[in-house]
Measured scan of single mutants.
Amino acid sequence: MQRVNMIMAESPGLITICLLGYLLSAECTVFLDHENANKILNRPKRYNSGKLEEFVQGNLERECMEEKCSFEEAREVFENTERTTEFWKQYVDGDQCESNPCLNGGSCKDDINSYECWCPFGFEGKNCELDVTCNIKNGRCEQFCKNSADNKVVCSCTEGYRLAENQKSCEPAVPFPCGRVSVSQTSKLTRAETVFPDVDYVNSTEAETILDNITQSTQSFNDFTRVVGGEDAKPGQFPWQVVLNGKVDAFCGGSIVNEKWIVTAAHCVETGVKITVVAGEHNIEETEHTEQKRNVIRIIPHHNYNAAINKYNHDIALLELDEPLVLNSYVTPICIADKEYTNIFLKFGSGYVSGWGRVFHKGRSALVLQYLRVPLVDRATCLRSTKFTIYNNMFCAGFHEGGRDSCQGDSGGPHVTEVEGTSFLTGIISWGEECAMKGKYGIYTKVSRYVNWIKEKTKLT
């Protein structure tokens, strides 16, 4: 034993070699072989497995989906700052455009905790909710729209109204504003409101030439003092309507412009014939205590009207009353817009006519005020429907199939267009061939041609 100890002390290297040989010859039971080890760690190889990531292109799944990435790591994937920024906006807080917040056709661009709407022409605001041009839906104005110097929408209202708090709607500024039905039992019968379409306001006024200088022999019209197929109006439903009495009662109609003036057809009036105007009328054979009678003290036909040349060209006249009318729910003026808007309103496509005229061709006159909704007829169809001249200051309205029309005794009465609950004068009943005849239409004086003249002559002093 002493000898062994001496050998170990003198030859430590020998001992180490012996131990190493023993270990190498022993069977290893701690580690699995290569094949079995792979069965336990069965993990798919990654895209760049075996390579240094710093030297390969980034992978979106590896960089940002398996674990949260930084902007720089995302930049490695896209290799483009702009594309990385677009991805980053949604990656950080989701897609803010998912709810489609942009209105009126706006395009949404996502941002971090926010979004941006790219608005089409005519709109602005956070969600493109603000109209900035009158060309689109009248700028959301209830009545009139004008573009300011910086191309912003400025709404306005006709006389007797003021802008509401929203700067879009119009509200009454006087007790009985024009064009409004205020009798409670008839307010439910107000005709369907007309909503502004998209309009090209630059070209809204037709490029028409008034044929002022045409000389033409007097034409022989049949029954051209021209509501057939209409309905009984309720008291106060058309408070701007008046009836004219002269040699015979209810020979023509008219509309209240203001307390002192009536507008009617020029062919209705004769110099030297006494005319009485009755406002607030409903049943011409009954006294309903809503009527107001006034005498006409002055007749002003349009300066281009000449019955000797043509009885229905420039067929418009103004009547001055001896005493002002007292405005109330049964006696209310009709609204008159400017030339541009009167023309736009007419193009809405349908209007209402009213009167006490004959209820059928050569038949009896109506006792109760009649009204009828009539569609506008395109000019080409209008011209083809008659052998008589249709001037540019006239328009056609009615039904091709016949059966409904204005008729004798309705002449001078109103053709009105309702705009968001307020009625505007767009025409004056003038003439036609018979009444409600198939293929024939009622012919009306186009008020847009005469609004400046009306307003100039009827100013209240």
Results as ranks from 00 to 15, higher is better:
Val263Cys: 03
Gly427Ala: 02
Cys157Met: 00
Lys126Val: 07
Phe224Thr: 14
Pro235Cys: 03
Phe360Leu: 15
Tyr161Ile: 00
Cys119Ser: 00
Ala317Gln: 01
Gly357Gln: 15
Leu376Pro: 04
Ile336Leu: 10
Glu73Trp: 04
Gly357His: 12
Arg46His: 05
Phe360Lys: 14
Pro175His: 08
Asn80Pro: 15
Phe55Trp: 10
Cys108Asp: 00
Ala307Gln: 11
Ile40Thr: 15
Asn203Val: 06
Glu73Met: 04
Asp33Tyr: 04
Ser187Asp: 12
Val353Cys: 03
Thr264Tyr: 01
Gly21Phe: 13
Cys268Thr: 00
Cys28Glu: 03
Asp338Gly: 08
Glu35His: 05
Leu321Gly: 00
Glu433Tyr: 06
Glu208Gln: 07
Arg62Trp: 09
Ser217Glu: 12
Lys89Cys: 04
Thr461His: 15
Val248Leu: 14
Gln167Asp: 09
Asp110His: 09
Glu72Ala: 15
Ile297Trp: 04
Cys18Thr: 07
Ile390Ala: 08
Leu32Glu: 12
Glu35Ser: 11
Pro177Asn: 01
Trp240Cys: 00
Phe144Arg: 01
Lys247Val: 14
Asn452Arg: 10
Glu208Leu: 12
Phe221Leu: 14
Trp453Arg: 00
Ser354Tyr: 07
Val331Asp: 01
Cys396Gly: 01
Phe224Ser: 15
Leu383Val: 08
Tyr352Pro: 02
Val269Gln: 03
Asp131Trp: 09
Trp261Asn: 00
Gly398Ile: 03
Ser156Ala: 11
Trp431Asp: 08
Gly105Pro: 01
Ser148Lys: 09
Lys293Ala: 06
Thr271Arg: 14
Val242Met: 01
Ile309Cys: 06
Val56Met: 08
Cys119Met: 00
Tyr441Trp: 04
Val154Arg: 10
Asn310Tyr: 04
Cys102Gln: 01
Glu116Ser: 04
Asp378Cys: 03
Val326Ala: 10
Asp93Gly: 12
Tyr441Pro: 11
Phe144Glu: 00
Thr458Pro: 01
Leu32Asn: 15
Cys407Val: 06
Val4Gly: 12
Tyr444Met: 05
Gly254Thr: 00
Phe251Ala: 09
Phe399Pro: 14
Asn166Ala: 03
Gly13Val: 14
Thr461Ala: 15
Phe121Ile: 04
Gly246Trp: 05
Ala266Thr: 01
Gly94Thr: 15
Cys396His: 02
Phe55Ile: 09
Glu259Leu: 04
Pro175Tyr: 05
Gly94Gln: 14
Asn100Arg: 09
Val416Thr: 10
Ala337Trp: 00
Glu434Ile: 09
Leu20Ala: 04
His314Thr: 02
Leu369Met: 14
Gly409Thr: 07
Gly272Glu: 06
Ser107Asp: 09
Asn113Ser: 05
Val228Gln: 13
Ile284Asn: 07
Ala397Met: 01
Lys459Met: 14
Gln237Trp: 10
Val269Ser: 04
Glu67Met: 08
Glu79Gln: 15
Glu73Leu: 07
Phe87Ser: 15
Trp88Leu: 15
His34Tyr: 12
Asn127Val: 05
Ser430Leu: 13
Leu460Trp: 11
Glu116Leu: 03
Leu163Arg: 04
Thr225Ile: 14
Leu346Arg: 04
Glu171Gln: 12
His415Arg: 00
Gly398Tyr: 04
Lys438Asn: 07
Leu60Glu: 10
Thr264Ser: 06
Glu98Ala: 09
Phe55Gln: 15
Glu142Ala: 06
Ile136Leu: 09
Val227Met: 12
Ile275Asp: 02
Tyr352Glu: 02
Trp453His: 00
